[in-house]
Design a protein around this nucleic acid. Sequence first.
RNA 1: GGGCCCGUAGUUCAGCUGGUUAGAACACGCCGCUCAUAACGGUGUAGUCGCAGGUUCGAAUCCUGCCGGGCCUACCA
Length: 511
Amino acid sequence: MTSDRPFFITTPIYYVNDLPHLGHAYTTVACDVLARFMRLDGRRVRFLTGTDEHGQKVEQSARAVGVSPQELTDRNSTGFREMARLLDISNDDFIRTTEPRHIRGVQALWQELERRGEIYLGNFAGWYSVRDEAFYDENELVDGKAPSGADVEWLEEENYFFRLSAWQDRLLAYYEANPDAIAPRGRRNEVMSFVRGGLRDLSISRTSFSWGIPVPGNPKHVIYVWLDALVNYITALGYPDRESYDFSTFWPADLHMVGKDILRFHAVYWPAFLMAAGLEPPRCVFAHGWWTVEGQKMSKSLNNFIPPKQLVDTYGLDPVRYFLLRELPFGSDGDFSHRAVVGRLNGDLANDFGNLAQRVLVMINRNCEARVPEAGALDAPDTALLEAARGLPKTVRTHISERAFHLALESIWRLVGEANRYVDEQAPWVLSRSEPERMRAVLYTLAEVLRHLAILVEPFMPGSARKLLDQLAVPEASRDFAALAHAPLVAGTQLPKPEGIFPRFVEEPAD
RNA sequence: GGGCCCGUAGUUCAGCUGGUUAGAACACGCCGCUCAUAACGGUGUAGUCGCAGGUUCGAAUCCUGCCGGGCCUACCA
């Protein structure tokens, strides 16, 4: 089942014009869970995140605040780095598009595309709205104005173009040959119908601002931010050195996780750029959904972007990580509400799982001299429960491979439920008086189930899992998925004093 | 305008290659337990499956129309 095949996963690089919020946290945590899962499953993982730092907006924002673009960028990039630390993200690398390694790679890719005749110099003309900062097509205009109602003017600009139009058929062939290249299904259909509708050549340079990577040989132009940004996925692997260990090991990427807003860039432009440069396209681009907050869209006017720090301060890190992945089918939109988070935290984490661990550990502590009890002879209910635990990794692995985080967690929680039922049925507190040997078999069974649960939950809630594994005295080296089958708890091992893992969230009384 | 998706218990959703009394979780009622984070377990109430037609021996599940909601429909993130 397991394999040591390399696994390369990326978050989008986050635009430094924004401050980190719930949406960034979501994408990043989802990637982190997959990265951790694959590592625990024995795979060689490279997990990349970073920041996108060029473009007109950054240049303007910097000017507005009276700092240089580089200063602004340094400051805001740090914010995303801190978010990763705050969320206990296990990224192996953090790339910034202002780093020399990236700039060098982007220019090399440009030259490669140029050498292959994929780039030409032409004129870009269209109706430009200064207010919207956007060009519009003739047929998009309404009464000679932008769809937004803004005034437009005819602008012509010398631009380099990428021959995207030439790639329509090859893109479609790529989607056909790789049904999983774009997920979920609905998104794939959207992308394909978009491409079938015909592709225009893409303007890939700008002369109206300067905060960007200069076009090799024509520094009046800077490279279009998306061509700049997307390439981070390979410059982080050492491109243009295609023989490097990193590049040859980890490319093509197994998964680019993106928000649905930037799917097109990843599912159309990016594969086209890569193929045009003679490189392999990614194995999968997955577009996840959006969160609303208390039923409302996150927006600048409502100013309801929740900073990750606030979430963690309020609920604790692991409950937030759990909630984000448990609450809705990955790929769908969902609502982030205080009520829902508290429901998950108190119901799933504190009552079901946390309390299960607590009741079992306390009984062992009191009735077994705080040592892992001797299993002795096991009865049918014991082996049934243990079988359920032993079968669980396979189920979870299947769900994770389909990125169905919610189903993975749901299947883990089914075992939590079975274990709680088993406790009630076996009533070890009764056995402690009448049949101590039987009690030990029951408590050993439960401890083993806890060990399975703790290890399976590690990718989702690394801190809490660690606490539980510490309380079970599971050695550091026996905390991966291989250890599930090969390193059962050893009778007689001394256990520390039990401590709650998931405290209940108690509402502050309103005043 | 064109394309795609959704509308099922109070709530969030599953079921939808048509076929026994439409399921789960949460919430709510009752019962049990007392090891445990006033936690756990059992059990019950609850739905004209958006509306109207049609196909079929039989439709939540297929077809048509309507109503309601969402997404996509190319460049400065």
